[in-house]
Amino acid sequence: MAMDEQTLIQHALKLFAECDYDQQDISTELMQDKLAITPEQILQLLQNLRTAELVEQDSFALTASGREYALHVLQAHRLYETYLARKTGHSESIWHQLADEREHELSKDDVKKLAEELGHPRFDPHGDPIPTASGEMPAKQGNPLVNFSAGWEGRVVHIEDEPSHLYTRISQAGITTDSVLRIEQANTKEIHIRLEGQTFIFPHAVAEQITVVALGNDDTFDESIERLSTLKPGEKAEIVGMSSLCRGLERSRLLDLGVVPGTVATVQLLNPSGSPIGYAIRGACIALRKEQAEHIRIRKVRQ
């Protein structure tokens, strides 16, 4: 990837800030890997960063101004991803790439406007915290999913969006920040995870991208939770919640229509093409596309 100097500096600063946040040490190898540049270029880059007084002369730590700048880029990137997620039809797999392109063009003012327009979101769609204008971020929590073994239950707090081919697998499974899951099986190559009535098998490389925390006291993994999309005609379901993948206007619209915990839903109208399907919800017939029904969590009610 050919990058001009300015862009490269911004990418580097973002990387430094992310590592800082993740409490990960920066090394030239890491830079080489993440920024896809040669060792000579790294030397040059570091020299540039130090002359601009963005990075300390004797370590990899960011200076005050370097940190401010880095947080701005981070804020721009994560806000823009949030914007893409909420306001455009672009597919999840290219959010990161598009945000990478745009982050450099956004001035402080643009970022401020964007934040306002989006209602000052606190987390981007992947669960990464968005720095405020004053540069605050909540503390990081959790461990990678691969660290845990069979039988462990926990909640997803973050999903790494890079590289995109791994991320796509996770998002296609409908796993999001706040998904509650159980590890069914874990071996040296793969990890089988169970959530919402389905089992997904991920190689370690994928599981590596998912950060989880243990369940809180009043939080349990509930085997009986499934997705509305699996409901069949004649069956009855009680809605238990909505995935965080369903957000913005769509989420509040569904809430308004009565998709709230406790609501009973049945299939009322099938569609030959499988989508949308009409569900009887609070006395009305509401047609939902398959992707939407996948975001609604239910528990089947025995009759």
């Binding site: 672009h90 619209r253 949308p276 017939c285 509401i286 596309r289 939407q292």
Partner: peptide
């Protein structure tokens, strides 16, 4: 007007 179809809800 590149993009993917967004979701929608339709009351019948």
């Amino acid at each position: 007007l590149k993009g993917e179809a967004s979701t929608f809800t339709l009351e019948l």
